[in-house]
Design a protein around this nucleic acid. Structure first.
Lengths: 347, 347
DNA sequence: GGCCGAATTTAAAACGTTTGCATTTTTGAA
DNA sequence: TTCAAAAATGCAAACGTTTTAAATTCGGCC
């Protein structure tokens, strides 16, 4: 057992050729005689030759890897998109022969320090950065370093161009408003988070813009906020919105987890969704289909986005295009049963 | 910008020391004067020196990476555990300074061929293999190669020792039976899959063993089977079990997705869960908590298992222990509302 | 039979580390 | 002051590739 891995030198010796020739033959260089190329390919296949990644990386400066730093979460929280995202990245990368490196930030180490390490150790040719904050030190670092990257999400505003792909939350929230308005709703609620994430800003903006566009002064919007990962506070915030004597008839949540909390608390308060209250989420997580009566939400197709991000990044790595690459993906409405006509006149 | 990464040679030159000394100082060798070690550490920190992974791997033969081949799924199917699993692996690896490589199998390439490539290119020091089949060519390959690995799951039976961690499905299914039996159920159903996965075998075995142990001849068990990823066939199989004139009063599903289908179809057939039918699943996927009335299931805590797997693998890599490492994790019952007393006498 | 250019092959350097072994410096006793 | 031993440092090889520049072989033509 433990049959050692064959090296280029050994392969060359067995063929009675120089290392150079074998290397070139395998790379398919035209300058090597076709007959030789075939002979080498055949021998390599038969010997099960696989080039050593470290050696190749060292000399070529290209590792063939794309890095992703795992977002830090609490001890019991897993990024709900991670599986889909990683699958999509893998799909996008594999067609170009690239693979993915996942680096985890140890307790007490910032995500940035892990990113630096990935970049500066030469492990990766480019990185994907997710969950962009309104102002994000990771992007600042990568920009300064001139290292290839694609962001999943956007900065709030920035003075430098960079490659990003984002879900058009603004459009979706506008669409949600229009749909609900047309169903007769006039009093809206928005459940959002307190962290300075750009998507929060964009989605709320989309909602506000749609309201303004409609130009109906009778439209009202209540906003409640809770820390992103604090379940207690989230429940408390939702109830603050739901329990008042004058509650909204339609609630839009920043993402599905929040919407599910709204539905749970609504049920607890004896409200029927969608008869008494319409609820709309964002993301289309798996549970949304199962939570009664079925959450109406927007599907961002994370997996496809990730695949696209992989493609973009490989393009960037291959040779910087003049313009930054940007893609805005419009999410699709998944109309389930949590929204409906506004309840008949109240007060 | 694009400030180049500093190399050991440059760092050495700036300190007026040899590469050797700096390398040893950073590695903390006692033979280097303490004063020098401190001076070097200080300079390295200040210069932001990060050793080049490729060079280090090349000479040391250790990459500091652990490989995972992404399980192949259909175009719209994502491994529901991937996120949790990867998070757990990351957590386990990071404390030892290791990172994760995710390789995806391209269409038309077998998972085995990707595994071979990962192993033979020297990208990883060890690999994690998931979703073990009853007879698994991947483990056979790794064994032959003498390459460090830990399996998540077991072979049906094998003539060689290997390192594995598995969830004790047999025990869980026995526990489920006992609980249901004590609730008065005598007619059971099992929904399982047709693929030759070991966990299918073990869980069904655990159920059968528990039944036999009870020694009650009035206990009956109906088994229906469907291909793992064929939703239509799954529904059809479930209905075959539910629609008969003499249906079980308690159904155990091989895993939650199947259990959820049972609950959906039961609802469609006008059966009340748990009054008319008890349903128990396995895995505790997110949707189980939301699907009314709340699925009773077993939690395998994938994330912790993955963390443990990472630890095991690092132990194996560090130096083969004499005995194979094996861990059987007992899942915990998550009692929700989908099970209850058997309905009063029928027929 | 020799010569030229084209076709093919090769030698050797380089990538940035680690490490066995040799060398230099320091220390302290004679 | 000298010298041996101990302490500290340095030289150079090695890891397995890719690549530049140079060398060799070949075919055809005079």
């Amino acid at each position: 057992m433990t049959n050692r891995v064959i090296t280029l030198k050994e392969l060359a010796a067995s063929l009675d050729l120089s290392i150079t020739t074998v290397s070139r033959a395998l790379a398919g260089h035209e300058q090597i005689a076709l007959k030789t190329r075939e002979r080498v390919a055949q021998a390599a296949r038969q010997a099960g030759y696989v080039p050593n990644t470290a050696a190749r990386t060292l000399v070529s400066g290209r590792s063939g890897f794309v890095g992703l730093v795992l977002p830090i979460r609490g001890p019991n929280l897993v990024d709900s998109f991670l599986g889909e995202f990683v699958t999509g990245l893998g799909e996008g990368l594999v067609s170009h022969g690239a693979d993915l490196i996942l680096a985890t930030a140890a307790l007490g180490h910032s995500e940035l320090s892990v990113l630096r390490h990935v970049v500066e150790s030469g492990r990766a040719d480019g990185v994907v950065v997710t969950r962009i904050a309104e102002v994000d030190e990771r992007l600042a670092y990568l920009r300064e370093r001139g290292f290839p990257f694609v962001a999943h999400g956007r900065l709030l505003d920035s003075d430098f161009g960079y490659n990003w792909l984002d879900t058009d939350g603004a459009h979706a929230f506008g669409e949600a408003f229009d749909m609900l308005y047309d169903l007769g709703h006039r009093h809206f609620g928005l459940v959002t988070i307190s962290e300075p994430m750009t998507f929060r800003h964009l989605r709320q903006d989309g909602l506000a813009t749609a309201i303004a566009r409609r130009g109906d002064p009778s439209v009202r919007l209540d906003v409640v906020t809770a820390p992103r990962f604090d379940h207690e506070a989230r429940i408390e915030a939702v109830n603050r919105m739901l329990k008042g004597p004058d509650r909204p008839t339609a609630v839009v949540a920043l993402f599905d987890e929040l919407a599910l909390t709204v539905m749970e608390e609504a049920a607890r308060a004896g409200l029927d969704v969608p008869r008494d209250l319409s609820v709309i989420g964002f993301d289309n997580i798996a549970a949304s289909a199962y939570a009664p009566p079925g959450l109406t939400t927007f599907d961002a197709s994370i997996r496809l986005c990730a695949r696209e991000i992989a493609d973009m990044l490989l393009t960037v790595i291959a040779g910087k295009p003049g313009k930054p690459l940007t893609r805005l993906i419009r999410p699709t409405l998944v109309a389930r049963a949590s929204h409906g006509p506004a309840p008949q006149t109240r007060s």
